[in-house]
Each structure stands twice: as structure tokens, then as C-alpha cells.
Write a protein that binds this DNA or RNA. Sequence first.
DNA 1: GCAAATTAATGATTTATTCAAG
DNA 2: CTTGAATAAATCATTAATTTGC
Lengths: 197, 197
Amino acid sequence: MSPAGSSRWSPTTEQLMILEELYRSGIRTPSASQIQQITTHLSFYGRIEGKNVFYWFQNHKARDRQKLRRKLSKQLQLQQQQLQLHHCQLNQDITNHFVAYPPRSTTQDFPFFNSPSLLFQGGAANTSEQALNCKWNVHNPQSNLVEKEEMTFCNYGWTLMDVNDQASSCCTRPLKTLDLFPLTTTRINEDCTTQPK
Amino acid sequence: MSPAGSSRWSPTTEQLMILEELYRSGIRTPSASQIQQITTHLSFYGRIEGKNVFYWFQNHKARDRQKLRRKLSKQLQLQQQQLQLHHCQLNQDITNHFVAYPPRSTTQDFPFFNSPSLLFQGGAANTSEQALNCKWNVHNPQSNLVEKEEMTFCNYGWTLMDVNDQASSCCTRPLKTLDLFPLTTTRINEDCTTQPK
DNA sequence: GCAAATTAATGATTTATTCAAG
DNA sequence: CTTGAATAAATCATTAATTTGC
């Protein structure tokens, strides 16, 4: 691929420090122009592309969330265990105080013992979700386009792509027949079912 | 945004027909060049951008899968119900034949009645997954780059972006101070914590 | 010390979910 | 309700740490 390059980007220490600082400062989903700026800036410290910056934030955010989720779920698990223990203790007490002799079998449990194990997935996820979904809106003075400032991923790629996209305006020059369209496309429902294998 | 345009693309009938035909013919995740071709071609029938094509395939594939999953899970559910019924019947039979008089309470269920509802998510997903994950590799004669032909989403966007990305090569011209980097970036760990609001 | 073997991190893709226009 | 658009979660794949036997 890239000459003398490995297949994937690995950030230099400086790049990483800067990225982390930006993250700490609140950036989570950088807009197109932000990515552009960051990339340009970081390219001073080593080879880097826009997508690297994009992915870095994507992953960092996700793994932050994930870490938080795990912590919460572990906490919950502990709480549950303690509750269970408490429950058990209570039950023991009841048994000791109100049931003088075993009711039928000493190995028999009380029904409320096998309480359903709570669903961490759902609960914890929602909690951490709300805790983390604080969006950060850039106040970019140069953007006088009235589009949503919360620019995204795809917009970035595609918007920039469209700069040299001749297909944006309805092109009237005779389209040369392309590989993908071997037949006239007006009678589509006939047998142009060229099955690729 | 676009002059006299609505906020989102809506495909013309022709465009839709072609897209569906292409989908039927096996295309699921069109490569960059494919998207380019398709877009160019479809732009003859109305305004369209590359991302529209990309999203269309993305969504169509996903919703196909989803539909299939639902069908399968419904089937399974039915099967489960029937099994349950069968089970119930069996239990009834057992009760009738082996228990002459009610054991403790007529409303009491047998423990194996509340069997765990099976996890459709896991099972069905995997099934439909395998059924749908038939990738389609283009045999594009014009690509003599030896990169993987299974090109993707981001590659598309970002690759094209990099065409006019001056930051790709390590730039040595003095970077003008950007909004995002108000201070020198070498001493990062000091207080450049400009909190955005 | 130092590679081969394992494991942990993390960059890059793909899939699922959600939002919102029409 | 359908579906284009966007975001988040899950997954894959490669690189860096780390361990292990010599």
C-alpha cells in the first residue's frame, strides 16, 4: 500500500497527547472542519490522515463509554450480591424465628430465593448512556452555511467528495455504457440478472 | 443548502427501479468505483449524490436482513408455542393419569412450565446472518491497484477526500495558529483546557 | 538478552439501532 | 409507516506489550 508503510496508522506520542488533550477538552465527535484542522495540525508530527482522526475519536469515545459501563455493571453486581446476602440473612432469620421445625424438607428453599438476575445490559447501558451523551457543539465562526453544525462522519467524507463530483448536477452528455449497466435501463424488469459469482 | 431542494434525497421511480435491480442482481455493499458509476448513471434520472447510493444499499441490506429475522423469529415463536402447547398437553395427560387427586392446589403449575423463553436475538440473528452474508466481489478491470477489491464505505469517502488533502504529506510550511490550538502544543499538559460550551 | 508465543490495545469495518422527514 | 440519514455497538484485524523458555 503506502510506500514503506505499515497497513495501519499508529499515532506518535505527540499526536496521541494532542488527541487526548482535545478529547479531555470536550471534543467527542469532531465536525468535518474540525477533523480537517486537527489533521493538518497533527500532520506536523508524523504521517496522518483525516480518517485516522475520525476513527480515533470514534473509538476513544466508544471505549470510554464501555469502560464506564463495565464499572457500573460491576458495581451493580456487587450491590446485587450484597442485597442477595441481605435477603438470605433475612430469610435465615425468619426461618429461625418463626419456623420451629422444618416445614417439609430442610433442603427446600423459599420461592423468592431464586430471584431473577437483573439485566445489566439494559440497565447499566441506559444509565451510562445518559451520562455520556453530552454532545459538544462547536462554535465555528467561519461556517456561515446554515447547515447543522453537528456535522458528522459521512457528511465529512461525502461532502468533500462532492467537490470533485461531476455527477451532482444532472449531466446531459451521453453516458458511455458502463460495466454495471450493460443494457438500457428503461426496461429493467427483463433478464439483466447477470449473476456474479 | 441545495437551492429549492428538500432536506433529503428521495429517489425517482426510475432510480429506485435501477437500484432495486442492482440489489436483486447481487450488489450489497458497492465499492467506491461502483458507487461512482451508479451515481453517475442515476444522475441522469434526477438529482443524486454518492452518499445517497451508499445509504440506500446500506439501509436496503439492513432492512432485508431485519425482515428475514422477523420472519424467522416469528416462525420460531410459533414453533415454541406449539411445543409449549404440546408440553402442556403432555403435562395434562400426566396429571390426569398419574395424579388421581390434586397434589396441593389446582392452580399450582409444574416447575418446568415456565421454561426460559429462548433468545431469538442470538439464534435467529446468526442464522439470517449466514444466509445474507454473501459478499459480492466486483471484477473491475480498470482497477490495477492491488488493494483489496472489497472496498468499503469509509475508504470511499476518505480516499476521495485525500485527493485534495494537503495534509497527507508532512507539511513544513508554518502552520497558522488555529482556533483549536490556541497554545503551543508541545507543552500539552498545561492549562489549555478551553472548555467549550 | 532475545526471539517465539500469548495476550492486551487499538485502528478499521461492519452491523444494528435510532432519529426524523415526508 | 416507510425510509433516508446519522450514531452507536459489535466485530474484525493488526500492532504493541508482555510472558516464557532457552
